[in-house]
């Protein structure tokens, strides 16, 4: 992260924050914590921070495909009015489909993302599953 060094008190997150975690259900909380920290430092209000926290959790679950192995790599990029999160799964044994899905959880994930973020997407390319989302801060958008 970077901050202004001109004597001002405002600190803006400009440089990407990167997080790499083994695909393990216990560790997705780290992605949520990072999302909340980045959003908070970017000036999101409490509700927006909560929204981004849940959205990043859903993105991780979608991309990691519950039950698969590998490493989840996340990049958080804060701009003046938004936070963008990119997520990819590297080195997974199975990355096609959500192994543990029983009751339409994937559809639920997509509904949650549709409601909470401005843009999101997924792709499967070259043996790697990737996802991304972008959420703007309404407060910043009005200023």
């Amino acid at each position: 992260m970077s901050g202004s060094d001109d004597g001002g008190s405002e600190v803006r997150t400009r440089e990407p924050v990167e997080l790499s975690i083994p695909v393990h259900s216990d560790l997705i909380v780290l992605a949520r914590l990072t999302a909340a920290t980045v959003a908070s430092r970017a000036g999101f209000d409490v509700e927006e921070v909560d929204d981004l926290r849940l959205a990043v959790d859903e993105l991780c679950v979608l991309v990691s495909d519950a039950g698969s192995s590998g490493c989840l790599r996340l990049t958080f990029i804060a701009t003046d009015d938004a936070v963008e999160v990119r997520c990819s799964l590297d080195g997974a044994e199975t990355v096609d489909g959500r192994g543990s899905e029983e009751h339409g959880e994937r559809e639920l994930s997509l509904r949650i993302l549709d409601a909470l973020v401005d843009e999101h997407g997924e792709e499967f390319d070259g043996g790697q599953r990737r996802g991304w989302l972008r959420k703007r801060s309404v407060r910043h958008g009005r200023s």
């Binding site: 926290r53 849940l54 519950a66 029983e102 009751h103 339409g104 959880e105």
Partner: peptide
């Protein structure tokens, strides 16, 4: 304090 789609899936299964 937090609920995501996987937990919602469990509740849907329990409802069924």
């Amino acid at each position: 304090t937090f609920i995501d789609s996987t937990a919602l899936g469990v509740l849907i299964g329990t409802q069924e």
